[in-house]
Design a protein around this nucleic acid. Structure first.
Length: 435
RNA sequence: GCCGGGGUGGUGUAGCCUGGUCAGCACAGGGGACUGUGGAUCCCCUAGCCCGGGUUCAAAUCCCGGCCCCGGCCCCA
């Protein structure tokens, strides 16, 4: 009988936890500066909740099971459904907008591969109750700033638009608009020839193919490519949406994040609930990691969940995709897992052991990260241990010193030792540590 | 769900093709040489062939199935 981890899950060891926590903290601080507030919903919901949003076919991606009461339950595949449920149930009459954030684990029943696990973490926000372009700008600015807060600078936030994509499918008169969008979404993975062939395969005419090729050209600096969009689209609805995009990039300029903003009308980001602006962040890397986060506007979802029609927008940052990139770039600070002081009692006498504990306790209360030798190993081995760990200061508490009320403080770097009164040990160590 | 490559003490590995020495080595861990002074040295100890079945006198080694890991596809909320 062997106990193993469940497929697609991971154990996080102290060193990695410290790094992850550092990343979470940078993101959390940024979210809070934008006045988003943290919420947490249950790890699992009725499977129905997730079906409601995305239809039956999502079930195969869900980590779903029947509980002992026969309830059809799924671990959350993301936070948006739960947040929408919470909003509909209890916050419809709350002052708008609602600005919530979360940092939590999500679950998807998929084959694990690079940057992809069955349990993974996302940090995201939802802004509910504003259909204004200001809300999109606020969210996209925060999205950008969140990456910047982790030290990442080599990335772009690419903005697309579902209204324009839908309009585009209408213009072409294709039946399989989902197929078209999937194809457009993965254009970068194909050569131009393959792309054209695939377009013909779904029934596009030469003219249609030409139009798609012009669409995917609308990619780059907003001020360079948005005029091209104006040429391509003719309907009033599309014109209005393009105007909105112009405003959006203008506002993002005021936020001071234009440097990272690009337009890419080929972005679709899933096919279920986004209704207008969509966006994703891409950071160049050699790890095979694509998007490191994304989001968009979803103005219909609340209604689907039984609420009054309410506009909303949000994003999620994929932690498992971000961290390897940060690590590769050396942006996550090294973490210290050793104590600053290590106290070694020498000998078995109760008095010695208690004296050691008293020093450890006093140091800990004074805010010093302190460890006590707990295995009963001999002084030689204990010093060896402290040396390997890189502990800077060791306190040796032994009967000989204690008889005259003293303990010994050893500097592990130089090997210099100092005998001090037991009562003065804490003060002395604080000075040595510069506290 | 599909495809490719893997799985040997805690970690990293040799052995596998060509079946047959107590499954070797390094690091890590515990103890001792050394009963109050570290990183050295020496000695000892702990600990392994992913699981199940098959072939064989004999399986880590060959065959089948499963599980898991790495990567790709599909899909990506």
């Amino acid at each position: 009988m062997k106990v193993e981890r469940v497929k697609g899950t991971r154990d996080f060891l102290p060193e990695e936890m410290a790094k992850r926590r550092w990343v979470f903290e940078r993101i959390r601080e940024t979210f809070e500066r934008y006045n988003f507030h943290e919420v947490l919903t249950p790890t699992f919901e009725y499977t129905e909740l997730f079906k409601l949003r995305s239809g039956e076919e999502v079930v195969k991606q869900l980590y779903a099971f029947l509980d002992k009461g026969g309830r059809d339950i799924s671990l959350r595949p993301d936070m948006t459904s739960s947040v929408a449920r919470l909003y509909v149930a209890s916050f419809q009459t709350a002052p708008k907008p609602i600005k919530w954030y979360y940092i939590a684990n999500m679950f998807r029943y998929e084959e694990p591969q690079s940057g992809r696990f069955r349990e993974f973490w996302q940090a995201g926000v939802e802004l509910i109750g504003s259909d204004k372009v200001e809300a999109d700008a606020e969210v996209i600015a925060l999205f950008t700033e969140s990456y910047l807060a982790t030290g990442l600078e080599d990335f772009t936030v690419n903005i697309g638009d579902r209204v324009l994509l839908d309009e585009f499918a209408k213009m072409l008169g294709v039946k399989d608009d989902i197929g078209l969008m999937r194809l457009i979404d993965k254009k970068d993975k194909l050569t131009k020839e393959e792309f054209v062939k695939a377009l013909r395969d779904i029934g596009l005419s030469d003219e249609g193919v030409e139009k798609v090729l012009s669409l995917v050209e609308i990619k780059g600096e907003p001020n360079e490519v948005l005029p091209k969009a104006e040429e391509l689209f003719t309907s009033e609805e599309a014109k209005a949406e393009i105007k909105r995009l112009y405003e959006l990039v203008d506002l993002l300029d005021a936020y001071g994040v234009s440097k990272w903003i690009r337009i890419d009308l080929g972005i679709a980001r899933g096919f279920d609930y986004y209704t207008s602006v969509v966006f994703e962040a891409i950071a160049p890397n050699d790890l095979g990691i694509g998007s490191i986060g994304g989001g968009g506007r979803y103005d219909n979802l609340i209604e689907v969940f039984g609420g009054r029609p309410t506009p909303a927008t949000g994003f999620a940052i994929g932690i498992e995709r971000l961290i390897p990139i940060l690590e590769r770039k050396g942006l996550i600070p090294e973490v210290k897992l050793r104590p600053d002081v290590y106290v070694i009692p020498v000998g078995e006498e109760l008095g010695v052991r208690k004296a050691a504990i008293e020093i450890v306790s006093a140091l800990r209360r004074a805010g010093v990260e302190t460890d006590l030798e707990l295995t009963g190993r001999k002084l030689r081995k204990a010093l060896d241990y402290a040396g390997r760990l890189g502990v800077p200061h060791v306190v040796i508490v032994g009967r000989k010193d204690l008889e005259s009320g003293n303990v010994t403080i050893r500097d592990m770097e130089t090997g210099e030792q100092k005998v001090v009164k037991k009562e003065e040990a804490v003060g002395e160590l604080m000075t040595l540590l510069g506290l």
